[in-house]
Amino acid sequence: MKTELILVDDDPVLLVMLQKMFSIVDPNLQLSPFHSGKEALAYLSGNHDTAHQKFILLDINLRDMSAWQFMNEFENVRKTCPSVILITSSVASANAEKAKNYAPVVGFFEKPITFQNIEQILKLVGKH
């Protein structure tokens, strides 16, 4: 089964960087970048393609919603949330603690995302 990685971050430069880094490490990975939580939610709810295993790389502080709201939205209104890997530019430790209370969260990374982080993320999504 092919793996699809949904990238959600409101920082356009970071989105470009992440796409570049992932494609350097794994050119076969399907990447779907989004600038807002709303766009990503709309895409996920409209897309019933089950051929792809989906993962979400999600920035905690999006401009339109927090990662927590994003996940709650998923669990309340839509179906089960795909596995989520949180990324944040904040260095406040409270976020990492809070993440433990959210079942979909399988990973937590502080920015900058390094190539080493990319390898770790790919391991989490079952590649490499």
Binding site: D11, V13, L14, M17, K20, M21, I24, N61, S89, S90, V91, A92, E110, K111, P112, I113, T114, F115
Partner: peptide, 21 residues
Amino acid sequence: QSHVVRAPLARLLGLVNLLDT
């Protein structure tokens, strides 16, 4: 400091890493 200032800094750090490779 921890949220707002760090965001562009994290971006800068990422860019430097990427440029390196």
